[in-house]
Amino acid sequence: MLRYTLRRFGFLLLTLVLTSIIIFVIAQVLPGDVARVLLGREAPESAVQALRVKLGLNDPLPVQYGRWLFKFVQGDWGESFSQQGRAIRPLVLERLTRSIWLAGITLVISVPLAILLGVLAGLNAGRPIDGVISVSSLALVGLPEFVTGIVLTNVLAYQLGWFPASSLVSPKASFQDTLPSLWLPAITATLVLLAYVIRLTRAGVIEVLKKAYVRTAVLKGLPWRQVITSHVLRNALLPTITVVAISFGWLISGLVVIENVYAYPGLGSLMSFAVARRDLPLMEAIAMMAVVFYTLANLAADLLYAWLNPRIRLE
């Protein structure tokens, strides 16, 4: 298992290096001269050149990449072009914290619900309850997030008044203060996730129920509940766990639409802001964070899967 962990960790580092190169190169090939963008269209050519030298933009690409990566690892993420030279790191980290809160709440709501519904559907495959669960979860995933978002806001915020309609919170707000604003975006994200996880869990349960070892367990005379908990779920939930862990990565940086709908200040909305403003250093930093969380989530999924699956753990 230690060997396996080390190997996975090695792969993680390799992935990070490769994606950092890709991110850096993409940022370079985007049209527009950074110095020109910074100084404005009216600035004289000599000033632009001077800034280019100062920023090291005339150096060969590998040198620029090395310098960027070196600074990035040390925590110097540069300054934002679009926000009058604000340091990027505190900005990104603040947004990241909020994204982690949102992702956490979403998982807390969606995972138990999805697994419960998925297992229920799988154990009753072909019966009406399975039909209701499968069809309704699919119908929900088919709706775009801005539609479900608007409907939820209308019903839960305006008509019932359970949650605030806008999730705009002050940068200094603590988790407790933010919590009320988290529910609506979290429920919206849950509706997107739910169908995938339910389908996967349902398929896993159906698959495992057909296995000969389940027959063995039944023919041991064990109560049905024990057959399900100790023989079926243990094997059936393995694929689900992987998907849940990976979806954590998506929740961190992929909720662009949902964050915009609710005006929630997470990493996703910051990314769309950065792209709209051509703020290269900010984009690079956000992209790197997204990759780091994706790969970490992936690593966690792999390790958890291996730990739960002796066939991998003991290789």
Binding site: K211, A212, A217, L219, G221, L222, H231
Partner: peptide, 25 residues
């Protein structure tokens, strides 16, 4: 009622022992 018979008074040994044992236990 069969549950009190299965595993106690009547048992099955199937063809493929690899498949009949739970891989995770």
């Amino acid at each position: 009622e069969m549950r009190s018979i299965w595993g106690r008074r009547m048992n099955l040994v199937p063809q493929d022992p690899g498949g009949a044992l739970n891989p995770a236990i």
